[in-house]
Design a protein around this nucleic acid. Structure first.
Lengths: 205, 205
DNA sequence: TATTTTTGATTGACTGATCAATCAACAAAA
DNA sequence: TTTTGTTGATTGATCAGTCAATCAAAAATA
């Protein structure tokens, strides 16, 4: 085996391994040994590259959020109208790999960790803001601004709520049903509204 | 100091202490020592009464859920109509002590724990089912059954989602706003419906 | 080209701290 | 004197983090 330029390879392997271990362990109380073993290296090497367990965990959150962000960007650029973009955001939130039990377990663990780790919290806040602002921007094209704020808040909450409920794995809701519930919410709140505030009968002001 | 009948007193003190410690620690990785100190007894006594840390934690979840349940029952009995009962359920979910940062942190920790502890998971499943079925029962009085199912699912998700978003403590949503968002959801989805499925103009079948 | 030197990658063994859990002993009430 | 409550001291396990030593490739030198 070669000997140079291993660093990026090992870092990625360790971050991926951490994600997997956290996922099926369902918590951040995982040991460096478990992660290292999963990545096929010694625990000492994990410390060598990341300095501390906390740092490795933070990189793991970062990487996960980055991947999610990339998905959103890609899907958003494919969608044309604001309404299509809203659907794209929803679709990505519930896409299969995001909605897998291990991924959801990891999410939950990250949220719990954010109660103690300021840095983890910051990442999740960024994610939450991005979700909200993506929704908001497109809603503003479809209804008055104040309504858009409310609806964005509600839709974001619903998405996160569907996640957390999924984590209990009792009567799990399918991906399609989750998408439908969120779409319904947006449609129902948008229905009586329109860009410039059409009251009820299609009269444009 | 007196000497008999201490057991229930100590158990309650320890469970309450655990809740407090978990709350401001924001995680279940708390030590028996911390809990015992908070309760003003020695760690050995905590083990004496609960046998293990896990058992104490489980009792803590149970006690918390029981208190919530009591609140719901009380508020529900005060409400008369189905629509009022729906509002009562929502109101309890967001009542001040439930929505306090430490309580939310504790909830989150319990959800994370449920990934590993079957018993904790069972309690949370029971809570989730109860919330859903309380909503469902009252919704059924207001719209067709299939619609009631969807709306109950969505409202439950929204409630949980508002909780989890609150845990990030960035741009926190007020109690009133949280209630308003959930009420809006129900109103919006209920609007085009009625008990026997009036299509759109008030014609009763 | 052959050799030595340097450098990055990697690990086994170890340390120190933390903690759940146990237990023997003691105090006070019954 | 029996029972209940209570604790300090201790044990054993687990882990994050450190370190000195090894190995093999690459670079420098002859």
């Amino acid at each position: 085996m070669p000997k140079v330029g291993m660093e990026p390879v090992r870092r990625k392997a360790l971050v991926d391994a951490a994600m997997r271990v956290i996922g099926d362990h369902g918590s951040l109380t995982v040991t460096m040994s478990e992660i290292a073993k999963q990545a096929g290296v010694s625990p000492a090497l994990a410390h060598h590259y990341f300095g501390s367990k906390e740092q490795l965990l933070i990189e793991t959150v970062r990487s996960h959020l980055q991947r999610l962000r990339d998905s959103v960007v890609m899907e958003l650029s494919a969608a044309k109208t604001p309404r299509e973009k809203l659907s794209a955001i929803i679709r990505v939130s519930f896409q299969a790999d995001q909605f897998a039990p291990e991924t959801i377990a990891a999410w939950l663990a990250f949220y719990a960790e954010a109660q103690r780790s300021e840095e983890t919290r910051r990442f999740l806040v960024i994610y939450a803001r991005r979700l909200r602002s993506n929704l908001l921007a497109n809603l503003k094209a479809l209804c008055p601004h104040e309504d858009a704020e409310r609806i964005a808040e509600g839709a974001a909450a619903m998405i996160d709520g569907l996640y957390i409920r999924q984590s209990l794995r009792s009567a799990p809701i399918s991906i399609e049903a989750s998408i439908a519930l969120t779409e319904d919410y947006i449609n129902a709140l948008l229905a009586p509204l329109s860009k410039k505030g059409r009251p009820s009968k299609g009269q444009i002001k």
